[in-house]
Amino acid sequence: MTGGSAGEDGSTVEAAGGTPVLRVENIVKRFVTDSATVTAVDHVSFTVAQGEVLSIIGPSGCGKSTLFNVIGGLAEADEGRVVVEGRLMSGPDPAIGMVFQEESTFPWRTVGDNVAFALEVAGMARAERTKRVRHYLELVGLKGFEQHHPAQLSGGMRQRVAIARTLAFGPKVLLMDEPFAALDEQTRLLLGDKVLQIQQELAQTTLLITHSIAEAVQLSDRVLVMTYRPGRVKRIVDIKLPRPRTAEIIGSKDFGLYVAEIWSDLRGEASLGMKDAEAHLPQAE
């Protein structure tokens, strides 16, 4: 239980190539409930290289979202540390930009003002702000929607606004927690394409948390599979699919092989989680 970081089968824990931008080292997070102490995240370590997309995948309840909050600085780890470009993170930091799973655009601000939010708080001059907002809205394909309110947009468009808002602040690492979870399948694929395209364009170092195997394979350079409770690194899979990728890749044979490989890793963990959930249901007498 101690120290065992990852890579039981010897796959790469270190970033494949390039210099690591994000180092996550031995993160441990426990929760104290009435009856017991639950270890949600247990000695998780990995790195993400410059321009790389790393996905973390695991069954519900494996501590993915806890890890997201710890890396983003919204929650404090009990052990371990997060380092970006050699700088130790303590609390929320501009170096890490977070995109949340839930609806997170501000309904009282226009699309443009949403994207400008962090810049405004940081005290950037209006002219500069407007320029940046326009640039990032164009990047996510929402040119001309500055004056709209989020309520007038579709769910997928709103999530793009949230991504633009985070990117506009210029984070070193883009940290996303199931950003497509609330969307339908087709929108999800198309938005995945869009994110990949932006990621390539900006060479944006990205850490994506997801429970969709297809999404992880479609988007990532490497996929980190987590165990169910306590959440540990089970293994890291290199995805050697050609780039640039589009959603069409999900039809390819290699794609299917990767999905099958990851599913065989994940299956046992997921069924553990399901049994656990069933056991905790209140029983009828």
């Binding site: 919204l74 929320p92 501009p94 890490i96 977070m98 949340f100 839930e102 997170s104 708080v121």
Partner: peptide
């Protein structure tokens, strides 16, 4: 919504900014 406050915190807003802006 908690997530809106989380957005603010992820951008390192101060407590008073969190209150007035979000």
């Amino acid at each position: 919504p908690k997530v809106l406050l989380d957005v603010g915190r992820s951008f390192s807003l101060s407590p008073s900014q969190l209150f007035w802006k979000i």
